[in-house]
Amino acid sequence: MRVLGVDPGLTRCGVGVVEGVAGRPLTMVGVGVVRTPADAELGARLVAIEEGIESWLDEHRPQYVAVERVFSQHNVRTVMGTAQASAVAMLCAARRGLPVALHTPSEVKAAVTGNGRADKAQVGAMVTRLLRLDAPPKPADAADALALAICHIWRAPATNRLQEAHAAARRGRTPRPPARVPATPAAPVSDSTASPARKVTR
């Protein structure tokens, strides 16, 4: 399994490709950052991010794309930029028919370090160890992208089983029953033909 992890951001968008399967040693295929100037017009920055991600998709041919799920923060401006970069990454993947998975920061930290509240230094150290690198990738956005890819590889078996179960349930859904035909009402029984009530003797 080859996964492109994307740590979205307008100024620095981390990208990292990891290959392997759960339970076996993983290999880093590539890591980097797509950068855009902070003083550039928003549309031009989004185009630059798109071109950068497309270049990574062309070069490394991943089978899956894992993107950090955007969550609410106090800095609304930062959240908006992150969400826009995230949407560009998902668009690039969808255009090629690649499955996209979203993972929250806490999910990634828990998967890689065992602690959902780990700091960036801890994530970088574990990524370095897991991928057998000489040093932590710089900047932190690049290490986070690799962590996303690792998280997806490790979580994929359980996720795939869940998706298969849902698909099987949909396929095995019982068909809608045919429309009911109203029953023909029984002919009323006249008093003359009714059986007389029997008297019960004690």
Rank of each mutant, 00 (worst) to 15 (best):
S55P: 03
A87K: 00
E19C: 08
S86E: 12
Q84K: 07
P196G: 10
P177C: 12
N75L: 09
V200L: 12
S190A: 12
L130K: 03
P139W: 07
A94G: 11
T78F: 15
G114W: 08
G172K: 09
R202K: 15
G172W: 11
V189H: 03
R198G: 08
T184H: 11
R198Y: 13
P99A: 02
S55M: 10
V100L: 02
P178L: 06
E59C: 03
R173L: 11
P37H: 05
S72W: 15
A168G: 07
R176I: 14
A158K: 15
A147C: 04
C92V: 00
E54H: 09
V79R: 09
T113G: 02
V79W: 04
H60A: 14
A94T: 15
T104L: 09
R2T: 06
L26W: 08
T128K: 07
E54T: 12
L133S: 02
R176Q: 10
R45H: 00
A87E: 05
T113I: 01
R202T: 15
L4G: 00
T193R: 14
A169K: 13
L148A: 00
A135N: 13
A83F: 11
F71I: 15
R77N: 12
D134N: 03
N115T: 04
G20C: 11
D7V: 09
P196S: 13
A145I: 02
P136V: 06
H103M: 06
S106Q: 10
M90R: 08
C92F: 00
Q84E: 11
A143T: 02
A135W: 09
P185R: 13
V31T: 07
G52A: 10
F71S: 08
A121F: 08
A66E: 05
A197H: 10
R202D: 13
V31N: 04
P99K: 02
H60M: 09
V189L: 14
V65T: 06
A169R: 15
A44T: 13
R132W: 02
A66N: 08
A135Q: 11
L4I: 05
R132F: 03
A118F: 04
A125M: 04
V123P: 00
R161K: 14
W56N: 02
T113D: 01
V65Y: 07
D119Y: 13
A48Y: 08
L131D: 02
L46F: 03
L131G: 01
L26A: 04
T128N: 06
A186R: 11
E19A: 15
L130I: 08
T113S: 03
V34C: 00
T193A: 14
N115C: 08
D141T: 01
H60G: 08
S106P: 07
V65W: 06
A145T: 01
R95I: 05
H74E: 08
V33F: 05
R12E: 02
P139L: 06
M80A: 13
A44D: 13
R176A: 14
V112Q: 03
A143Y: 01
A179F: 11
V108G: 07
L46E: 04
A145S: 04
P8D: 06
A187V: 14
E54F: 01
P62H: 10
A87C: 14
V67A: 09
D39W: 12
G9Y: 01
A165D: 08
E68F: 09
L102E: 15
A93R: 11
D58V: 05
R173Q: 14
G97Y: 06
V200H: 11
